[in-house]
Amino acid sequence: MSLSIDDLKCHNLILLDTISGSKAYGLDTPESDTDTRGVFILPQELFFGFHYVDQVNSERNDHVYYEVGKYLKLLAKNNPACIELLFAPQDMVIFRHPLMDRIKPEFIMSHLCRESFAGYALMQVKRARGLNKKIFNPVSTDLPLPIDCCHVIQADKTIPAKQWLSEHDMVAEYCGLTALPHVRDGYALFYADDCELGQVRFNGLFRSDQGKSQDVCLSSIPKGMLPRAWLVFNKDEYSRRLRDYHEYRNWEQSRNQERYQGTLEHGGGYDAKNLMHTFRLLRMAKEIADTGRPQIRRPDRDELLAIKAGRFAYEDLMAQAASELESIEEGFALSKLQVEPDVGQIERWAIEIRKAWYP
Rank of each mutant, 00 (worst) to 15 (best):
V125P: 05
F136T: 10
L264M: 10
E347N: 12
D62Y: 06
E31H: 14
I159S: 05
I83K: 09
Y187A: 02
T178P: 10
L143D: 04
G204I: 07
E252M: 15
E340H: 14
D148F: 13
V39G: 01
Y25G: 00
Y314D: 02
K162N: 10
G268Q: 06
T34R: 13
F48A: 08
L305H: 11
A192I: 07
Y358I: 05
E247K: 15
D290P: 07
L242E: 03
K9H: 11
D316C: 09
N256T: 04
M276D: 00
M100E: 01
L99E: 02
M100G: 01
Q261G: 08
L13T: 01
K286V: 02
S254H: 15
N78P: 04
E330W: 15
M100P: 06
D215W: 13
T278F: 05
P181I: 04
K223G: 07
R259Q: 08
Y245M: 11
K126I: 01
H182D: 09
Y314W: 12
Q90Y: 13
Q44N: 08
M1Y: 13
C175D: 03
C175L: 11
H97E: 03
T18V: 12
I103E: 01
G186A: 09
R293W: 13
H63G: 02
P299M: 13
A172F: 10
Y314N: 04
P144V: 04
K212Q: 10
A321Y: 12
T158E: 08
C195H: 13
F50D: 05
R184K: 15
I353F: 11
W230R: 13
H168R: 13
D236M: 14
H111F: 10
W230N: 04
A24Y: 04
F312Y: 15
G211R: 13
R129E: 00
L305E: 01
Y187D: 01
N57V: 02
L337G: 04
D33R: 15
V171P: 09
T34P: 08
D236T: 10
G26H: 07
I328A: 01
G204L: 11
G292W: 09
V125R: 09
P294C: 00
M109T: 00
Y245W: 15
F95W: 12
G26M: 06
E265W: 13
V183S: 14
A179L: 15
L27R: 01
D54T: 04
I19N: 07
P227Q: 03
G224Y: 10
Y245K: 14
A285W: 08
Q295A: 06
Q124R: 08
I5G: 03
D6L: 14
R354M: 08
G211V: 06
I94L: 13
R348I: 05
A356V: 02
V200C: 07
W357G: 00
P299I: 06
F50C: 07
C217G: 01
A128D: 00
K134M: 11
C10K: 14
V93H: 06
I135E: 03
Q295D: 05
Y71I: 05
A88Q: 06
D156T: 11
D142K: 14
F279C: 04
L131M: 10
M225D: 03
S323E: 12
G204H: 10
L8H: 05
V39A: 00
S220D: 08
V93I: 12
T263V: 02
S58C: 09
Y270E: 00
